[in-house]
Design a binder for these strands. Structure first.
Lengths: 188, 188
DNA sequence: GACAAAGTTTACCGATCTGTACACTTATGG
DNA sequence: CCATAAGTGTACAGATCGGTAAACTTTGTC
C-alpha cells in the first residue's frame, strides 16, 4: 500500500463533501465518486462522522499551509502582510472551485457546540486568528489581539457574502476596510 | 380557521429548522414537534422545499422588522444609527435562543446558486444591505454604498464568529471596527 | 342542523440512509 | 511460493427519507 488508499479516500471525499455538503452526501455517493469500496471505508473509519473529521483535518492542514505561505509570498513586512491576508483571500474566493468555507458550512450542519465536528471547525478558525495576531504583533499594532480579531471579522464576512452574492468583490471591500483599520491601529 | 393552521405550522417549523438544520429535520420530526399532521402539511405545501421557503419568508419578515425597529429605537440620528446596527446585532447574538443566521445556514445547505432557497437567502441579505445603505446615505458618508458594504462585512463576520466561538463578543469588536470605518468615511 | 372545508389518523410506497456480513481477489514481504 | 494484509463486490439489515391514499373527525357558516 504505497500510495495509501486511506489518504486517497480522504482526498476524494473532501471534494465531494465540499461540493455537495455533509448531510446531502451519502456513503453510496462516496463509493461512486471516490472509487473506493464501502467495506474499505468502514475499515478505515468507524463512522461517517469520523471520516468527516479526517476530511476536516486535511482541509485545515492544506488551507493553512497554502494561506500562510501565500501571505508571506505576497508581502515581506509584517504590516504589508496584514493587508496581503486580503489579497490571498481574494485569490481563494475568486478561484474557480471556491464554494465557501468548509468550516463555516460544517458548523452550519453540526450546530451542537459539543459535536467534535463543531469543535474542530472552531479550532481551525482559532489557529488562523492566532496567525493573524502574530502578524499584528510583529507589525507593532497598538492592540494586536483586537486588530487581528477585527480583521478576521472582515475576512469571515467577505467569505459568506461572496457565497451569498456569487462574486468575489467582498474581498476587495474587506481589504479597503482593513486598510483603514490597520492605519487606525498604528502605534505612535 | 381563525388562528390559521398554516401559519402555526410555519411558525413551529421555523423553530425546528433553525435549531436542527434543514436536511437534518425530517417531515416526521416536524409532525412530532409541530403537532400538525403530515397530510395537513402536504395540503399547504407541495414539497419540503416549498415549506422551507415559507419558513424563510417568515424569518425574513420577522428579523428585518425587529432589526430595523430596534436600530431606530436605539438611536435617532442617521450616523448614530449606523452604530446602533451593532448594538442591535449584539442584542440578537447574545439572546438566549441565538443559533446563528438562518440564511447563512440555508446557503450552506443549499449551495446551488440557482436553488430558490439560495436565491431567497441572498435576497434577504441584499435587503438588509439596502437598509444600511440608506442609513449611510442619510449620514452623508462620502461613499454610502461602500461604507454600507463594509459594515455588513463586519456584521456577517460577527455572526459566524459568534457561532464558531460560542460567545457574543465579536459583535462588540465589530462595533469598535465600525466606529473607525464610519469616522473615516465621514464627509469633509 | 345540514354541508363543506379543514384537519386527523393510520398505513403505506419506493428510495435512500448508515452500517455490516461474507466470500472473493489482489498485492506485498519473507 | 506462501502467508498475510488490504481491498473488492454484493447483498442485506433496520431505520429513516419525502410523499401519498383513504377513511374519519372536527370546525365554521348559512
Amino acid at each position: 500500500m504505497r500510495p495509501n488508499k486511506r489518504d486517497e479516500l480522504v482526498r476524494n471525499a473532501l471534494e465531494v463533501f465540499y461540493r455537495d455538503g455533509f448531510h446531502a452526501t451519502g456513503m453510496d455517493k462516496l463509493v461512486a465518486e471516490t472509487g473506493i469500496s464501502k467495506t474499505s471505508m468502514y475499515k478505515h473509519f468507524r463512522t461517517k462522522d469520523e471520516m468527516i473529521l479526517a476530511v476536516l483535518r486535511l482541509r485545515d492542514e492544506r488551507f493553512r499551509n497554502w494561506f500562510c505561505r501565500r501571505v508571506e509570498e505576497i508581502a515581506d513586512t509584517p504590516r504589508a502582510r496584514l493587508l496581503a491576508v486580503f489579497d490571498a483571500l481574494h485569490e481563494w474566493i475568486t478561484s474557480p472551485r471556491f464554494k465557501g468555507c468548509m468550516f463555516i458550512k460544517a458548523v452550519s450542519e453540526f450546530q451542537d457546540p459539543k459535536d467534535p465536528i463543531h469543535i474542530q471547525s472552531a479550532t481551525h478558525k482559532r489557529m488562523l486568528l492566532e496567525y493573524v495576531q502574530t502578524l499584528a504583533t510583529e507589525a507593532r499594532a497598538r492592540d494586536p489581539a483586537a486588530l487581528a480579531r477585527q480583521l478576521m471579522l472582515l475576512k469571515e464576512g467577505a467569505i459568506v457574502t461572496s457565497v451569498m452574492l456569487g462574486n468575489g468583490s467582498p474581498a476587495i471591500e474587506a481589504k479597503a476596510a482593513a486598510t483603514v483599520l490597520i492605519e487606525a491601529a498604528d502605534c505612535c
